[in-house]
């Protein structure tokens, strides 16, 4: 998975979720979920990261189960819901809702955890003709993210160092962060321009992201599988 072209991978997985959105089969959903998990394990994703990410998903699935269970529409409903509801069993409805959450999450993780961000942006730039300003604007914004996390901690420490204790999401704490992110955008733009980047002029590329045969095979394979199911 890691060596696939990010742009193609993105299109493929987007296609898969799209198909899922129009099918209402728990079995298919669960199959997709387990396939994704298998693919993730094969591409050496850290078990711990995966586990942490899965917890909220499982919780959400449970929530959706109960929602589907309680509020399955009445057969007498005027809306043409019959297309979607194959069985009127409440449990079945619950499972369908829950498995859907799992399937989407599986596909999402498969993309996220196996894709290098820089490569992804570069690949979008090449394959989807994403304008350069966007590609690099995004990379720059992405770059300050770890800084933003650090900044959050620092702002908290700054309050603490003056004997003020603040609530973790209080406006007093978030405001300096907002001000800073605005400052950043201006200063980053200045920094990029002063290094000769304008987004409009020609430039060379050190890394070249290409689409190879195996990307097409992956695309074709996934499409075939979901359609055949």
């Amino acid at each position: 998975m890691r060596t696939l072209n990010p742009a193609i991978k993105f299109v493929t997985l987007l296609g898969v979720t799209f198909v899922l959105a129009f099918r209402y089969e728990p079995a298919l959903n669960l199959a997709v979920f387990f396939l994704c998990m298998a693919a993730l394990l094969c591409s050496r994703v850290k078990l711990k990261t995966l586990g942490i990410l899965l917890v909220p998903i499982l919780l959400a699935a449970v929530g959706m189960f109960f929602t589907g269970y309680r509020f399955s529409a009445d057969a007498s409903m005027p809306v043409a819901a019959a297309d979607f509801i194959v069985s009127d069993s409440k449990v079945w409805n619950g499972i369908a809702q829950a498995s859907r959450v799992l399937a989407y999450a599986g596909v999402g993780f498969l993309f996220t955890l196996t894709t290098d961000r820089i490569l992804m942006v570069k690949s979008f730039e090449k394959q989807f003709r994403l304008p350069q300003v966007w590609a690099y604007g995004l990379l720059a914004a992405w770059g300050i993210f770890p800084q933003a996390v650090q900044e959050y901690k620092r702002t908290r420490a700054a309050f603490r160092a003056r004997g003020i204790s603040v609530f973790p999401v209080s406006p007093a704490l978030l405001k300096p962060l907002l001000v800073k992110s605005v400052r950043w955008s201006e200063e980053l733009a200045i920094a990029m321009e002063s290094k000769g980047f304008s987004g409009e002029e020609e430039r060379t590329e050190y890394l070249e992201v290409r689409v190879r045969l195996r990307d097409w095979i992956f695309l074709a394979g996934c499409v075939a599988l979901t359609i055949l199911f």
Binding site: Y136, L139, A140, G143, W184, E187
Partner: peptide, 14 residues
């Protein structure tokens, strides 16, 4: 070419 006074905010990549 200019080197900014605040060393924090002059880079665009990772």
């Amino acid at each position: 070419g200019m080197m900014f006074q605040n060393p924090e905010l002059q880079f665009c990549m990772d």
